[in-house]
């Protein structure tokens, strides 16, 4: 019994001691130091932000920026052996996996919204887009109101789902929604004719169209139904880690390095099939880079409600 007691005491003392040694670190940074691993959440079909190349490795604009953050973490913690581990997430699982601690950063195509800010924190906006729809050229759909009574596929858990459903309720279009679990599956529904349209951030639609079997069969239509500023997600209430992430991202903006990363993914040939999206930087994004901010969209789906 005595032995057990002293063992416990030793354990407590050890815990207290190690706590004292890294007293200035808490939250995510402490977790990374303790485990020696930084876990990055990625997507499988958010082209060109976060997707898999022909060897099934995660790549993309967001992934590149997250790797820069991992470098900064490595430098700050002075851990030359810091390992980067990639964890696949989906639109549905990203928030629970992040808050549950299974990833430390989510690098994908996540819209920064005020509602999500109740659950997670965002790095400064690194892309600006909005909801449009992709339809087949021969479908006869010219705008949102042509969707009346038609079948529309949505990726579950996206802001686009909300924007489309809100529009449907408002205009009483009587759209029949079918849910899908990721963007590739949603696009498959349009490709096979199960659904006539798929509402999604326009840039992702450009990416999906570029990787389709016959890109010329599809058109991307409509006014923006919602504004979607993208940000890298991390856990909330972790000021120390957020500062490190924000400083790294803002550093990329200030040094102009962001332009190089942007050109690499949006204006050059990208894996897996060597397509060039030819998508120059929008004015909204230039603004966001000039004045870095992590403002989210409001409940109405627009920057100004």
């Amino acid at each position: 019994m005595k032995r057990i007691t002293s063992l416990f005491l030793a354990l407590f003392a050890g815990a207290a001691f190690s706590g004292a040694a890294v007293a200035q670190e808490s939250g995510t940074l402490k977790k990374i130091r303790d485990t020696g691993v930084i876990k990055i959440g990625h997507r499988d079909a958010s082209i060109p932000f976060s997707y898999l190349d022909e060897k099934q490795r995660p790549i993309g604009y967001g992934v590149d920026i997250c790797l820069k953050i991992a470098d900064a973490v490595q430098a700050q913690l002075k851990m030359p052996n810091l390992k980067v581990e990639f964890v696949p997430v989906t639109s549905q699982t990203r928030i629970p996996i992040l808050t549950g601690g299974n990833i430390d950063l989510e690098c994908g195509s996540t819209t920064n919204s005020i509602e999500r800010q109740k659950q997670v924190a965002f790095a400064p906006t690194y892309f600006m887009t909005g909801t449009k729809i992709i339809v087949k050229k021969n479908s006869g759909i010219k705008g949102y109101d042509d969707l009346k009574g038609k079948t529309v596929v949505i990726t579950q858990g996206t802001t686009n789902e909300r924007a489309m459903k809100a529009y449907n309720d408002e205009k009483k279009l009587g759209i029949n929604f079918i849910p899908a679990k990721d963007h590739a599956e949603s696009f498959l529904a349009v490709e096979t004719g199960r659904a006539v349209a798929f509402p999604m951030d326009d840039i992702l639609l450009f990416g999906l169209r570029a990787s389709a079997r016959n890109p010329d069969d599809y058109v991307i239509l409509g006014e923006f139904l919602s504004d979607d500023p993208y940000g890298i997600m991390m856990r909330r209430d972790d000021a120390e880690f957020k500062k490190l992430v924000d400083d790294t991202v803002i550093g990329l903006y200030k040094s102009g390095e962001i332009n190089k990363i942007y050109t690499k993914w949006f204006q050059s040939k990208i894996p897996p099939r060597g397509i060039n999206l030819n998508f120059p930087m929008s004015d909204a994004l230039k603004q966001a880079i000039k004045n870095p901010n992590d403002t989210g969209v409001g409940a109405c789906g627009k920057m100004k409600c």
């Binding site: 928030i95 629970p96 109740k118 659950q119 858990g157 849910p179």
Partner: peptide, 22 residues
């Protein structure tokens, strides 16, 4: 739910997304 039927599990997931009350 994998082919889009909103049965009990699918609704539970959907509600957890909208309310975060997982």
């Amino acid at each position: 739910l994998t082919i889009g039927v909103l049965e009990l599990t699918a609704q539970a997931r959907q509600i957890s997304e909208y309310t975060f009350r997982t």
